[in-house]
Design a protein around this nucleic acid. Structure first.
Lengths: 353, 353
DNA sequence: ATCGTGGTCGTAACCGGTTCCGCCACGAGG
DNA sequence: CCTCGTGGCGGAACCGGTTACGACCACGAT
């Protein structure tokens, strides 16, 4: 890139330019920039004036290189479009701003390889914290690589944060902010069970994903607590999408297996369930009760409003960056946020046979 | 920060460390890093090995400082949670990744001041492009500041991108990627008019926001084309939220002004409209027809599915970064993406009186 | 009048890379 | 056998800031 022809007004002004214009040394400019050093009022005024006249802005890279920290937190998630992730992202972004940090965003689109690659990029960026949002893959090789990264980040003064996924191990230097996935599933399943449902379908098991594993566990435990066991045929595999919810429900209906309630793995899945039921002329909750998980805004727009498990998205995101950034003073680096069910109108007693 | 005690394994490994371990010079290490220079195969192997052994990653800041560009695009939007913005963000992120860039994300929460402050931050970060997503404020002081930033960014080799908002002026160095807001509103209003509606309420005018201004203009023009004029009493001010849509509808109903259709400024607003109508026992579209704008996923989940204006969110985001990053080879820096109406089931003929 | 002292400011050494320039050894051509 | 060209590599000057260190000045105190 060609440097400026005249010392001013072309290209980006530097401290050198400011110093020259203000008639002071570079270090003096740097001092008023940092603010943390005595500079005579008159001198400061000259410098500030020169900065304004030259429309000067510091070069964040130079500053990061010379100083200690980067003022950037990175967070990686599946997809910004997913309301769940978006809500967490919002919390992350908000808290990062509060802490005076910028946000680096990366998406993986559900690809474990890409997740690894992205973390590498974040290491290059010297991010203060790298926040991994959402469920993790139950793959030991992947977890090993992840552990490696956690240590590498720790070694370079950064921090890995597991947000909405379980810890990697007791000796892995990472901050963990979970939400009570299993108990949420347990609670809402109990809700269904208490209403009298005995044949409940769980739709949307994603293999090897901690999120579903935990939800299915809560689902199963709740049955057990009622002296029951879920019918394996009613636990169906799918994706966390509207289309998948629709397909799974259609299939379930086609199979003819009796059921009186559906536990959709996520609210998005539930929206697909709603449509399939509507097309089958089945009323909610008179014919079939439906519950979801996540409590995204959509839950209110479904007709009838969806009974679901509320997850503290925002708090999840905020806590993640708060703990990571202030880890020097924050004693606890592993928290489990509570979930609770949000009762609305999609659950009723099972229909009389 | 204390430097490493031993030359290896503590802190972050640098090119110097790698060079020492591989028994070559710093410049050689840099050359294999860059890839763009002849290095003997044997030497390269030694270096690569040393890098792996030391778990080396380049320091992006040092690289940015020494080299030319940053490999980062910044984008600022109102709120990640909004489905519209999220969808654009997804496009931005995707294209940025394709172009080998990282994404810096900032939110303004509708605060013009913050938007300005954020752009300043992005300048510090030397972002390759700064993408502003969503409508702009029709405030001349604000636009002036914006113009100033556009020039400043241009001067430092960066680029401002207006994504979903109108150009600032013919001589302002900025890339503009708009969508046809007015024609979309015109089309869907015509759709309503053609169905026989004559008293259509427009809900959700946000003062001084280009987005609503353009939509209202299309709304008005469509009326005019039919030899009509909208009733000013039916154009109501509000926010782009579900709650606002709900409130405005309630109020409209309470006012007793006759109307047979509602044009919600956005789909989110429409969701509030739906609820208010449901509570008033008014059927859609038998009693009231409703249309929205944006075509976010929610439109499909509303009952009945919402007829709305489809906006090419994803393309909007992708085009924004594509044009900005490749502006050297992309001849046109101002594009207007088309919109079209997505007909679903929320519009019918007006009820017989 | 001299010395000590505290407040300001300039000089220079970094931070961790990239890249221009020049050196060296080697093989080929005269 | 000597010279010239060339591929591979090292030395050093940056990029734009921060900061330790020391110089300088004007004070009040002795």
């Amino acid at each position: 890139m060609a440097r400026r022809a005249t010392p001013e007004q072309v290209g980006q002004a530097t401290v050198k330019d400011v110093a020259a214009r203000a008639g002071v040394s570079i270090s003096t400019v740097s001092r008023v920039l940092g603010g943390t050093y005595p500079v005579a009022t008159a001198t400061r005024a000259k410098v500030v004036r020169a900065m304004r006249e030259l429309d000067f802005v510091v070069n964040a890279h130079a500053r990061a290189l010379a100083g200690a920290h980067t003022k950037v937190v990175a967070f990686v998630l599946d997809d910004v479009t997913g309301p769940f992730h978006a809500a967490v992202a919002r919390g992350v972004e908000h808290q990062a701003t509060t802490e005076g940090r910028l946000c680096l965003l990366c998406t993986t689109h559900g690809d474990p390889q890409r997740e690894l690659a992205v973390i590498e990029l974040m290491r290059e960026q010297q991010a203060d914290a790298v926040i991994l949002v959402g469920g993790a893959w139950e793959d030991s090789a992947h977890q090993e690589r992840m552990t490696h990264f956690a240590r590498a980040l720790d070694r370079s003064g950064s921090r890995m944060v597991l947000c909405g996924r379980p810890a990697l191990g007791p000796d892995v230097p990472a901050t963990v902010v979970e939400y009570d996935n299993e108990n949420g599933a347990y609670a809402i399943t109990s809700h269904l069970l208490s209403a009298g449902h005995r044949r409940i379908a769980f739709l949307g098991v994603v293999e090897k994903l901690t999120t579903t594993t935990q939800r299915v566990r809560g689902f199963t435990e709740a049955h057990r607590a009622h002296g029951l066991a879920p019918d394996p045929d009613l636990i169906v595999t799918g994706a966390f999408t509207r289309g998948s919810g629709y397909q799974m429900t259609k299939q379930l209906l086609a199979d003819g297996k009796p059921f009186t309630a559906i536990f959709a793995a996520t609210d998005i899945v539930a929206s697909g369930v709603y449509q399939a039921l509507r097309e089958a002329d089945l009323r909610i909750p008179e014919d079939v009760s439906v519950v979801g998980y996540d409590d995204i805004p959509l839950a209110l727009d479904l007709v009838p409003p969806l009974t679901t498990v509320h997850v503290p998205h925002d708090e999840l995101g905020r806590t993640a960056v708060r703990l990571a950034i202030n880890r020097a003073t924050e004693p606890v680096q592993h928290v489990m946020l509570g979930t609770h069910i949000a009762v609305r109108q999609s659950v009723g007693p099972p229909p009389p046979r």
